[in-house]
Design a protein around this nucleic acid. Sequence first.
DNA 1: CTTTAGCACTCTTCGTGTTAGAGTGCTAAT
DNA 2: ATTAGCACTCTAACACGAAGAGTGCTAAAG
Lengths: 384, 384
Amino acid sequence: MSEEKLLDERKKSILKAVVDDYIATAEPVGSKALVSKYHFNVSPATIRNEMAELETLGYLEQPHTSAGRVPSDKGYRAYVDNLIQVEELPDEDADRIRDYLQDSLTELTGLIRKASSVLSDSTGYTSLALSPHMRRSHLQQIKMLMIEPGRALVVVVLSAGVVKDRLVRIPDILDANQLMQIAAAIEEGLSGMTLDDITMVTVASAARNAPLPESLLNQVLYEAYVAIKQADNLELYIDGQHQLLSYPEFHDVGKARCFFNTLARDGIIAGYMNEMKEQEPLQGDPALANNDHNRTAITPFKEQNPSYMIRIGQEIALDGLQDCSFVTTTYKVGDVIAGRIGVIGPRRMAYGKVISNISFVKQTVNEHLKRLARGDEILEERQK
Amino acid sequence: MSEEKLLDERKKSILKAVVDDYIATAEPVGSKALVSKYHFNVSPATIRNEMAELETLGYLEQPHTSAGRVPSDKGYRAYVDNLIQVEELPDEDADRIRDYLQDSLTELTGLIRKASSVLSDSTGYTSLALSPHMRRSHLQQIKMLMIEPGRALVVVVLSAGVVKDRLVRIPDILDANQLMQIAAAIEEGLSGMTLDDITMVTVASAARNAPLPESLLNQVLYEAYVAIKQADNLELYIDGQHQLLSYPEFHDVGKARCFFNTLARDGIIAGYMNEMKEQEPLQGDPALANNDHNRTAITPFKEQNPSYMIRIGQEIALDGLQDCSFVTTTYKVGDVIAGRIGVIGPRRMAYGKVISNISFVKQTVNEHLKRLARGDEILEERQK
DNA sequence: CTTTAGCACTCTTCGTGTTAGAGTGCTAAT
DNA sequence: ATTAGCACTCTAACACGAAGAGTGCTAAAG
């Protein structure tokens, strides 16, 4: 199994060709097809020997004797870590994405949803987008707006210009003015704190001077507290589930059902994506290291782009997605990494295309969110 | 084809038995199975004759000679209009639904989303819920809340206690006070009008006295106008798409893909559901009319429940859903019919179960939304 | 006139066997 | 180290036949 030897250049290019071809055709690829399509200057027999070796090394698999080879998880892993070359996104695609995301400048969730949607459209796979977590954000404002007796809208403004609100019940006898005062007191006491640091206790102490009997006050404070805390709620946007049904790996309805069932539990997926942050990226395969030939060595994708996280097949720790691959990256709100956006599809995924698309979407989203945050800085300066 | 004769009681009960059985098993049902399962006191041969007749009348179909019979669209239609008996929802299911919807009292969209979700869970099909249209609602309040220089939150409060908001860009140099004044002027001028009646012109004239240069004002007014208008945006919530993959009619991936593709175009579906309001319910089949026997005649479901709309197979004017059935009903916000909620699934759908579930969800939603509107009336009285 | 038993007929489904083709691994020659 | 040649293996596709389910028709019975 181990005993890793360096793969020579020819093995690498054969491996790459096999993966490329299998991605394109979904058919096991044989030695003869390889030589003719990829212009190797050797005979099929030579390729066969090499492929046999790649198989014993664990990079390829055979569905059965006398079928072609198919990449294993390890094969895909080597491919994405060291062999892939990612072209830049064609201008027309880039323009389309930019245009589509253009008009949702002001609202964060709208932008994330659209990002998810466009990503699914342009890759042809299923896209996932996790709303940013905000626990490190600072509370900037909290307002309470009387809607009618007994109901109010709590508006929470966070650093980086993120706005969340929530409709709540309040005691019937409170009037708009009292409500505003309470909100002002809370804002006075808490603004600048991170969501993480705000607790029911800090909320209560911020508002201790409010001119209200405690029982009434408590209900309002509780609702304010909940509104603040739910500003950090993770939301998962999934788009383009239907796309996967086009691929032969999902022609078996059992597989498809399994996949859809898993995606339907969006809490689990959201949790999984969220925890990815903390994980070390899986380490690459030393056998693929660039053995310093004078050969034009392409810098491996992995080293250029440490912020991309790719999970292949069994690497995905979610039941029902073991036949899939998962490519994600992070986006920032202001300057901090906040959310995650990505694509899920068959293991035989067009990684290059997916990465260039995600990469561009990520970049565009970051720019938009940076712009939001800039308005934010202006505000902070004025306050000084 | 036509020449409709009245169906005698035996034909009716055979038709009902065929539909019931096919719904339960998804297998074409034969004469022998019918007599043994449903205890007809006649021989299979008699049943065969009757079924042959039902086939020439168009209620049944044969997938091929020497298979059992399967209901046609017309057969299902007769079934749901005249033959079905809808039992009340078992208490445990009712409790589950009630509990699930309990905690989303304050927020309209949250309630609708949950209603959709619970409907899909409890029926085992895909659910659809259309957010209420609000064009007949009256504007009650409009507030503009300064978020930071250049950005504001527009909050629109409609009659029946519905609250919508929208983040907008405004000129950088406006301050919070000016903004409040503009909002107050708009509210003063427009409150009580229906969304339908509000136009850019009425907004502008409501705010004509605001103390601001026109160019600045116009941008704000436009954003206010958009915020008001988008309070009427239709949103469609779809839940439980994965459920349908369990049914044999979707074991053909082509069918499934077609279905999912259509559902992915949610604008089209939303439009279709929205237009259902205006359509006359399809008229029933006179041949099924209750021929006044002294037989214990069940009142046909259709007459008891005119507010349910059932579309079967070809009756659905949406490409890709012709193998499905669609059961929907309306819910009210306050006292006016406002939105539509329903279920889509195979034609061979457990109509009875679906109807009792939808019926209960509708009722629960209506109660919640009535409660919202009641707070509303209180407010109006105080204003007098 | 309605119901029913009997029977021939049809059509699907399922298992089996056969064949063609693709692709391999091995061996021996280059 | 490479390659031509060849035997071998496995799948996919097709045909064939038997089994089974269900029908329609006919003629007899109620």
